[in-house]
Design a binder for these strands. Structure first.
Length: 152
DNA sequence: GCCAACGTTGGC
DNA sequence: GCCAACGTTGGC
């Protein structure tokens, strides 16, 4: 089983929004970055665990846990002309973008970006690297466990 | 294939 | 709202 960190802007889609979805499950769509797509396509498996990270907001940080509940499949928003994620270059017979489904597992007490920065044990965490903008990053188990402890 | 211009991300 | 960092685009 692998571990991940998935970013979302809470103004767009928050952990509470995920909870409110049918079966607490929703496609993690709108990913328009090849590296992030490839993680979903090649590395993610059903039952992998993900941190839900709130970005671009007043208190950025990890707010909960979700579970991967599908393999990667074509992101339907790329074909939806009304979607902000519409991609005119992508064709249904050869979709460019993929998503997985994720299911809410639980909320955590906020582990803020500020707190994580202050822990030497997390210094190699990708999210803390300067200029890192990747919306899906792998997390090693020791970091995962450490962050879980910080949330208690 | 280079790289300048542009758009986006995301912390502050 | 600012701006640094990064990814993408497109002319050459």
């Amino acid at each position: 089983m692998k571990y991940w960190l998935l970013k979302s802007e809470p103004d767009v889609f928050s952990i509470d929004d995920l909870y409110d979805c049918k079966d607490h499950t929703e496609p993690w769509d709108g990913i328009r970055n090849y590296q992030a797509r490839n993680f979903m396509r090649d590395e993610m498996d059903i039952n992998d665990q993900c941190f839900f990270y709130h970005s671009n907001c007043k208190s950025p940080g990890i707010v909960g846990i979700m579970t991967v509940v599908s393999n990667a499949y074509p992101d339907k928003t790329q074909f939806d002309k009304k979607s902000k994620y519409f991609d005119p270059k992508s064709k249904p017979e050869k979709p460019t973008w993929l998503n997985v489904d994720v299911k809410f597992k639980k909320k955590l007490n906020l582990v803020s970006l500020e707190i994580m920065k202050n822990h030497a044990a997390l210094k190699d965490l990708l999210i803390l690297r300067k200029g890192n903008r990747l919306s899906i990053t792998p997390i090693i188990k020791s970091h995962w466990d450490y962050i879980i402890k910080l949330s208690k």
